[in-house]
Design a protein around this nucleic acid. Sequence first.
DNA 1: AAGGCGTGGCG
DNA 2: TCGCCAAGCCT
Length: 353
Amino acid sequence: MRDETLSAELLAWYDRHARDLPWRVGPAARAGGAQPDPYRVWLSEVMLQQTTVAAVKDYFHRFTTRWPDVGALAAAEDADVMGEWAGLGYYARARNLLKCARAVASEHGGRFPDSHAALLSLPGIGPYTAAAIAAIAFDRPETVVDGNVERVMSRLFAVETPLPTAKPELTAHAARLTPVERPGDHAQAVMDLGATICTPRNPACGICPWQAPCRARTAGIAAELPRKLPKKPKPIRFGIAYLGRRSDGAWLLERRPASGLLGGMLGWPGTDWAETAPAPAPPVEADWHPLGAEVRHTFTHFHLRLALCVAELGPDCTPGRGQFLPPDAFRPSDLPTVMRKAFDLARTAFATA
DNA sequence: AAGGCGTGGCG
DNA sequence: TCGCCAAGCCT
């Protein structure tokens, strides 16, 4: 059965405390008839997948400045989009972002569909994002369930079953609270609550609009929820990267395969990353010098220790892999973070050589 | 249907 | 220093 009492209390809080975000139409403007741009809602939601608001803001501004609408993005070069996404992580999102933009442009006349089912069929749009776009951009009564909602529901109803087992139960709770009126504001309100008050650690229960009905707070276990299954330890992997600079200043880089880790991104040629020390595998015969420092970087499922080799390459150098990018065609900011760390260390070495 | 897939901030 | 965590999706 539906319970809109709780939502009414939350919306009253949201009307006073909604965060001002670049992609958001606030409750006052929305009440005045303003509608969010589905393109901006979609772009922000994809960027926000497993990513904090603070990390997304600058990327969102750069993307919307460079590609103001879905048609412009659909017409962009792959390398430009991947370069603009560099540093934000989870690069499959960028690959699917382009696929989705092109699908909207070619199959939907340049307009985002407004139904959950149609949105779900687009690349990079899963259950959460489809519901978020339908609710926020089109004010459809969809139930949005992300990590925030799971945490808030687990506390509000004191669900002690660990995630991900508890997910269906938490989704059912969230669905009961979804109002027919203002479902978009409701969705954003629950997520704002989770992001600012019902936080993972040290939740600010004293100022929470749901402090009275919250069963975890009553039981004194709010900070312990949601419970989660233990995680596997991350192994350490080792690799070597080769940073070669030609005498004219061009750097030897390569485009990584279109799928897998850092898929589609620019990177330095090198060995595979394995749990045992790699055999040297330079991309071209040269006087490679090992760098004293190594890059340490942690991915989702392993720690990487990346040894670096640098070399000055001759003007007629013809490498077996990769391509030379002249200085005016190479922005270090186009590199994923692990590769940019390597560049920063090597650049220092060249500068002092 | 578990596991692959980035990064930065925080306690 | 280190584990945890963030507006998940795909295979």
